[in-house]
Write a protein that binds this DNA or RNA. Structure first.
Length: 252
DNA sequence: TATTGTACGTAGCAGATTTC
DNA sequence: GAAATCTGCTACGTACAATA
């Protein structure tokens, strides 16, 4: 989908992008070959062609920052497949909802193979370095919750593509919290964590602070299932997101 | 419960091109 | 050359909904 995206090019909006799609152009290389098919003002044509050539170059050199900066927030999901191998699925637990008054208790990071959990009082300060290894971050409601918390505690952590799954999922008909969407997609939790909510996560942390190490284990398991399920969710729904985007184009 | 980023719709403006 | 048209951008205000 990224290689058939044009709205990251300055002065190109959704109207022009849809006109390109409607001509049957499937990717940037296709556009470079057939750009004369598209009837556009000369200046815009020049801009578009050089923007497409630059995009091809930037993608082949793996420059995620180029796309992170230029893609609108609600379109970053289009980059998913191209940076899939360098993706961190991220979820945090905190003591409450306010990033000014509450604290992060743990940060879970899953890379598609293994999960690392960084815990306050043990190794939480190592989380930013781990996050820095990735080109793409995937969260649920992270734009309003996880990233502001992390940025508040560790300023300058993020320069990656950020896919906040909440918005594209909503567009394809999956609204509600993460647990609800997991259940809609048939994803199951383990017996130990089934039914645990965010509020319970706060309680588990307090029990751990009072000396209950089992509570920490449960909290880590809960957080791990969150990040692992993020990967499952995008793997299932990403094709639907693409399908919906192209369908909207055909309708208009 | 506090918080707040995002989507969405609308309006107005600017720039480029097309048409007459 | 002037007017019309098209398109993108920006700035609002409002509503929503999810997080622990």
């Amino acid at each position: 989908m990224l290689t058939n995206t044009y709205i990251h090019i300055p002065n190109i909006g959704t109207t022009t992008e849809r006109r390109i799609w409607d001509c049957g152009i499937k990717c940037w290389e296709d556009y470079v070959e057939n750009h004369n098919m598209i009837k556009l003002p000369r200046t815009k044509k020049r801009l578009l062609l050089s923007g497409v050539e630059e995009s091809i170059e930037q993608l082949s050199s793996g420059n995620h920052k180029y796309f992170a900066r230029r893609l609108p927030m609600n379109m970053q999901w289009r980059a998913y497949r191209h940076f899939k191998e360098k993706t961190a699925y991220v979820d945090i637990e905190t003591t409450g909802l306010s990033c000014q008054n509450d604290r992060i208790t743990m940060i879970g990071i899953y890379n598609g193979n293994e999960t690392k959990t960084f815990v306050r009082g043990i190794d939480l300060d190592k989380a930013p370095a781990e996050l820095g290894k990735y080109k793409q971050i995937i969260t649920f409601n992270g734009a309003r919750f996880d990233l502001p918390f992390i940025e508040y505690e560790f300023p300058g952590t993020f320069d990656q593509i950020h896919i906040d799954l909440m918005y594209p999922l909503k567009k394809i008909g999956y609204s509600g919290g993460l647990k609800k969407i997991e259940s809609m997609l048939g994803l199951r939790r383990s017996d130990e964590t089934a039914g645990i909510t965010g509020l319970d996560a706060v309680r588990l942390w307090k029990r751990y602070e009072r000396g209950n190490s089992e509570a920490l284990e449960t909290l880590i398991k809960y957080n791990t299932e969150d990040v692992v399920n993020l990967e499952k969710i995008i793997r299932i729904t990403h094709p639907w997101m693409i399908e919906r985007e192209l369908k909207v184009s055909k309708k208009s």
